[in-house]
Each structure stands twice: as C-alpha cells, then as structure tokens.
Computed example of a mutant assay.
Amino acid sequence: MAAALNRIVESASGREFAGLARNLFGNVRLDFGAADEEKSRMVSAMLGACRLTRLQADRHIVFGEHATAGPDDPNAIKLLLQTEGVASLDQGGLHARVSANALVIYDPSRPYMLTNSTPVRQLLLQLPRHVLPHAAVDRLTMPFTAHAEHDGMCRILLSLMDSTMHEIDHLDTARRSSVGQTMIDLVRTMIGADLRQAKPVANPLDLLLQRIKDFIDGELARPDLSVSMIARRMGCSVRYIYRAFEVECLTPSDYIWDLRLQKAAARLRDASGYAGEISGIAFALGFSSSAHFSRAFRHRYGVSPSQWRKARIS
C-alpha cells in the first residue's frame, strides 16, 4: 500500500530541484546566485484537483516573467504559505512581504518575481482556476495576502497543509481528494467567495471539460498530446480528467483521436489532390505516420483517405 502511494509523490533535491520546479510550476526561472543550491529539497503530491508541495531552499529568486502560459504549463492559481524565512512577491505594481506564518495567493500567469531573501521553508498549494469563482480569479491582478495571527481561516489552512504533508504517505487516493476539496473550500472562503449566497454556477466538471476540449482543439498537431499533458496544463490529476469525460461516454484519448479524424475528413473535402497532401493533413493533425492515419481513417469511415477525397471531388 505504501509503495503504491509513494509512486504518486514526487521529490527532488540539490540540482534536480529547479528542474522539478519547472515541471510542476510551469514557466519559472530560478536564480540561486551565490547561495547553496544543494540545500534545496522539495516533496509534492496531488490532492484530487490540487497539488500540494513542501519545499526548503537557500535564498534565491523565482522569475515568472511571461504573462502567457505555455501549452505545458499548469493553469492554476498558486497559494504560498511561508513557515520559515522572509520573502517578497512583486506583481502588478504591488510589493507583498511574505513572512513566517503568512500566505500570499497569486495568479502565476501574470508576470511576477518572488524574492526569497533568506533560507526559506514554504508550502505551495496549486488550485485549478475552474474550482474558484471567476470574480475571485479576476481580482487577482495583484496578490492577495493574509496572516495566521490575524486570520483564523489562514491559520486553519496552514495547519491543514502542514499536517497533510507529514501524513501524505499514509493517505489513500480518496482521503487525499477529500483533503484537497477541504483546502479548496477554505481558500474560496478566504478570498471572499460567499458560496451560500452565490448564484448557481455550472458544474465544475462541465467547465473543466470545456476547457480541456478547447485545449485539445488547439494542440491537435502535437503527436505527444496525452492525458498526462492535459492534466498538467489544467493543473489537476489525470483521474480528474477522466472524470470530466465520463459524461461523454468515451476516454480522453478516444476523444482526441476521434476529433483528429473528424478534422481530417473535413480537410479532405477541400483537398485539391496534389501529391503528398493527404500525408500533410495527417501530420498536421498529430498522426505519427501516413500508414497510421490511413488505418485509423478506414476504421472510422469505412474507406481510405484517398477514396474519401475522390468521392467528394466527383
């Protein structure tokens, strides 16, 4: 049981620290300057739709320089809890000091600079945008800050995040998801979302499904498009992606290939017939070879791509 749980806990130390940070947090650059990068440690785990990370490092600067997220960057809001050390976040013209037992919530798709001016210990929670009210996310043009000494919800969240990381190896998937949902509810309350008085909103899974479909539509040309890539970009677990597709009665992978074939059929209707055009359509839609495309197309439509094209021309 413990071995199975540990496989979904990621960790890194020393010179591997920066690489895992980029993998988990997207478009960031770390600068340790003259500090000791070998002192860096990080442990990270998925909690249902959330990701919780504990890290410690010598003084360093994190640069989140590009407002537009890349196709592989997790589309998540970040919540940073400082347990030791001093840091500051500069974003949107605001200089937010982050000290012991304080937190800052920010939108990492907007340019920012996080300066850790001393060795730090931090807890970082990533929440997919779709789990937070749109109005709350829209307010994050500048960081939102709170302190455990003055905010009871902040104190509760800090305690929950800290205890969760200590018990992470002993929590199964269902318990992790439950803890993650509790953290989402706490954050929604902290940033002023009164859920009891809010108007009904669409099912979060329906919103997620539409965002996934939009992402897939824009990335069909990538042969490496996969469920794990989509989960990273959406900032949630692979299991959550599959849950979103349950209403479609097909898997995410089946949806990707079916959409590729639909778009291929549409493009073949307008094909002019020059040599290599069919292969060009196949490669432009992420198929690894003409043979693969031809087999999949025949299975879907009962004829070869060239027969389909000729039938539309005649």
Rank of each mutant, 00 (worst) to 15 (best):
16 E>T: 05
82 Q>S: 14
33 G>L: 06
96 A>I: 02
7 R>E: 09
130 H>V: 08
183 M>N: 10
291 A>L: 13
198 A>C: 10
68 T>C: 05
286 G>F: 02
271 A>D: 10
9 V>E: 13
90 D>V: 00
21 A>H: 02
163 S>H: 02
114 L>P: 06
64 G>Y: 02
123 L>V: 09
63 F>Q: 04
91 Q>F: 02
237 S>G: 07
68 T>W: 01
274 Y>N: 03
212 I>S: 02
109 S>C: 08
232 R>H: 09
25 F>T: 04
213 K>S: 01
166 H>I: 11
146 A>Y: 09
122 Q>M: 14
269 R>P: 02
176 R>I: 10
259 L>I: 00
113 M>E: 02
75 N>T: 03
15 R>W: 15
100 A>Y: 02
101 N>W: 01
69 A>T: 12
84 E>K: 14
27 N>W: 00
210 Q>M: 07
187 V>C: 14
276 G>L: 07
299 H>P: 07
171 L>W: 01
190 M>A: 15
259 L>G: 00
43 V>E: 04
107 D>G: 10
206 D>A: 07
95 H>T: 07
142 M>R: 08
281 I>E: 05
225 L>M: 07
309 R>I: 03
1 M>Y: 03
133 P>K: 11
82 Q>T: 12
299 H>N: 15
230 I>T: 10
181 Q>R: 14
296 A>V: 08
271 A>I: 12
97 R>P: 11
207 L>W: 01
293 F>C: 15
295 R>Q: 15
